[in-house]
Amino acid sequence: MIPVETLILFLITTLVVFLSPGPAAIAVTAEAASNGFKKSTFVILGIATANVVFFILSATGIVTLILASYTLFSIIKWIGVAYLLYLGLSAIFGQSGPLSVITDKKTEINAYKIFFKGFVLEISNPKALLYFSALLPQFIDISNPIIPQLIILCLMAIVLDFFCYSLYGYLGSKSRGKFIKPQVIKVINRSAGAMLIFAGIKMASVGR
């Protein structure tokens, strides 16, 4: 059984990390603003699924192998960098960018595409990989059964994922349905694009 003090520390640490603005938060906010809060939950589900994968990899020690391999780590990192730059440039130079006004209510948004967007954003983020590989060992007591501890921490991480990113989704959805001038949308899109590009550049500087 994990001590209550350890659980509280894990909760606070993970909460702060998940609430910190980043590519995933931008993606959730933009999706909620464009297509509503319900659709943004698919982005959140993709992010949470990627974090579960990181959790499993960390628990099985595979993350250690990835971090030890310069090639594997570089592949993951540069995929993430390329995807962030693509999203950023699309937001700046695209017709609508991440924030758009949906006028055709019959238009069906592909939930799988939205889920994939969130999953790729998170799974290709080396900072998330480093975070979980560094985090888990600090909260595991090897003198007690490890599997139950991992299950508890993983469930907590999933709950925090949905809680934190749902806040961003809620904020994004508040702008939906309100009249926003095209000039304002353009500024928001370019700002979001610049933030994504900045995140990509910062991600490129992450070392093992």
Rank of each mutant, 00 (worst) to 15 (best):
L121F: 09
F119T: 02
L87R: 14
P98H: 05
I76N: 02
A91S: 15
G88E: 09
G97I: 08
N125K: 06
T103H: 14
K106G: 06
I123C: 02
L84P: 07
T103Q: 15
D141F: 11
L84V: 03
L130T: 05
L87E: 07
A134M: 09
F73G: 01
D141H: 10
L67K: 05
A134K: 13
L65M: 08
I123T: 06
L136P: 01
P137A: 13
A128R: 04
L89R: 02
F116I: 05
L85K: 03
L65G: 02
Y112G: 07
S69F: 03
L84H: 05
I76K: 06
K106F: 12
I140Y: 11
I114S: 05
F119I: 03
A68I: 01
F132T: 02
N125I: 05
E122I: 11
I92W: 15
Q138G: 10
F119R: 01
F132V: 03
G94H: 07
A91H: 12
S90I: 03
L129V: 06
L99Q: 08
L130I: 10
E108M: 09
I123H: 00
I79W: 03
G80K: 02
S100Y: 02
V101R: 12
K106P: 00
K113F: 00
L67P: 04
N125H: 11
F116L: 11
K105P: 00
I92D: 04
F115P: 04
L72N: 07
S96K: 15
L130M: 14
L135R: 03
P126C: 07
I109D: 04
S100W: 00
L129E: 12
F116P: 00
A128G: 12
W78R: 02
I76P: 00
N110V: 04
Y83T: 06
A128D: 09
L89Q: 03
A128Q: 09
